[in-house]
Design a protein around this nucleic acid. Structure first.
Lengths: 232, 232
DNA sequence: CACTTCCAGATCGTATACTATCTTCTGATG
DNA sequence: CATCAGAAGATAGTATACGATCTGGAAGTG
């Protein structure tokens, strides 16, 4: 499967790794060896390194000096910061979206919500979570502003790692029906209500996570030493 | 002045180029040769290239395939998109800031406004503009959220290129006293008024620019052929 | 004389080679 | 037996070298 015939552009390689991480196929903390990735994509380290740096800028990957690149393992503080940032930024987004939303936009959102519901009923947690992210991205796209869309996209992708790390095994997906409520508020044209709902929606998402009272630092370690009673 | 003794980290080189561009020492459209930059900083192309790519991700630089890197020359559409994005995002920011602002924060903002005023009276347009950007960044920092600060910082830096390209020679700096008004609204704790003021402030900034009715595409060319009457 | 074609110089993009640093295993020592 | 020092292997970081592509000018042709 090591294709030697396809040139494959840098952006394609980037997207491949990006999707693998956000899609959960690469677990947080996983090592991303340069030579190894180079062989996978049939190119040299020289082209892998900048891509890794780019992923590092996106906070999807961390590069430890002279140690290598790893899939990011956001701390509890990071998780809270990203969520807080989303509360702040997506408030502006949903307000702007509410002002300009057209029926076709609402239809699109409702379709995503419906699919989300179906995925959750089908116990397809991965798909449900992906659709959750898509909902927020699509909401941002209603503003018609690519810059905003890109910012939201980045924040949503960072949140993917957070849920991968801190999701409770019990809770299958995201909040239950919170998105439908948002669409209702947008349709009603009630900007303040929509903004309020968005803030609380994101807070709810945060509360479904298991962030541990004192912050389950490494997760793998915490699980490994659970029998000791976690006295730190 | 070509120091061969200092190793100079990648981030330092990045910041050096970044500041040179945002600070206006490198004009939009300027060529950024890889070998040339390598010699300036006493390193090889290999280290310059990823830095250029990073600046490209930040939209401060554009990389044309097989042609090289150039200081970005944002189009009128780009300018409008960034400004619109700021209206959307900074609305959320100023609302969050209004909710949590402390007296010390207000003091900090007023100091910047005062310095800004002084710079403008001293006909120091460059300094005034830099302080304008700093005001918005400092406002974002009130939220206490680094993610938000970083997003705003990025947007503000992109706007630097916009004003470098499209600023009217007449208007020395940014809006006249718009910032003081924002601080007043924040101090009053009136979230809606603050948000409203922010949106209009950014719109005002946009209107001080000379974006040309049909979009003064290259600026240098437009000036060069002004005598022809610009029939495009 | 104007236009096209071709060649030389320059610069970008990538692979390979080398050096520095970290990790790990082995072996010695308290 | 536990611990620490040292060497070998592996991997990151950087520079150099080579091939590909673009730009600009010179020569050729209608």
């Amino acid at each position: 499967m090591t294709a030697t015939t396809e040139p494959m552009t840098d952006d394609e390689i980037h997207r491949e790794i990006f999707d693998a991480i956000v899609g959960g196929r690469l677990a947080p903390g996983e090592k991303l060896g340069q030579d190894e990735l180079g062989k996978v994509f049939g190119v040299s380290k020289t082209r892998i390194r900048p891509i890794l740096h780019r992923l590092s800028d996106q906070k999807i990957v961390v590069m430890e000096p002279m140690r290598g690149a790893f899939v990011a393992r956001p701390s509890v503080e990071d998780a809270r910061a990203v969520n807080a940032a989303r509360q702040i930024i997506e408030e502006g987004v949903i307000r702007a979206a509410t002002r300009v939303a057209q029926p076709q936009h609402l239809k699109m959102l409702r379709e995503i919500v419906a699919e989300e519901q179906r995925a959750r009923e089908g116990r397809n947690g991965g798909r449900a979570h992906r659709l959750t992210g898509e909902f927020h991205c699509e909401l941002a796209r209603i503003t018609g502003n690519d810059v905003v869309s890109e910012v939201v996209r980045e924040l949503v992708s960072r949140d993917s790692l957070v849920v991968a790390l801190y999701q409770r095994p019990s809770s299958s997906g995201c909040s239950l029906g919170g998105h439908a409520d948002l669409v209702d508020k947008i349709e009603a044209g009630d900007e303040d209500a929509a903004a309020h709902a968005m803030r609380h929606h994101l807070q709810d998402v945060m509360e479904t996570l298991d962030l541990g009272e004192e912050g389950r630092k490494s997760q793998a370690l915490a699980k490994a030493f659970a029998h000791l009673g976690d006295k730190s």
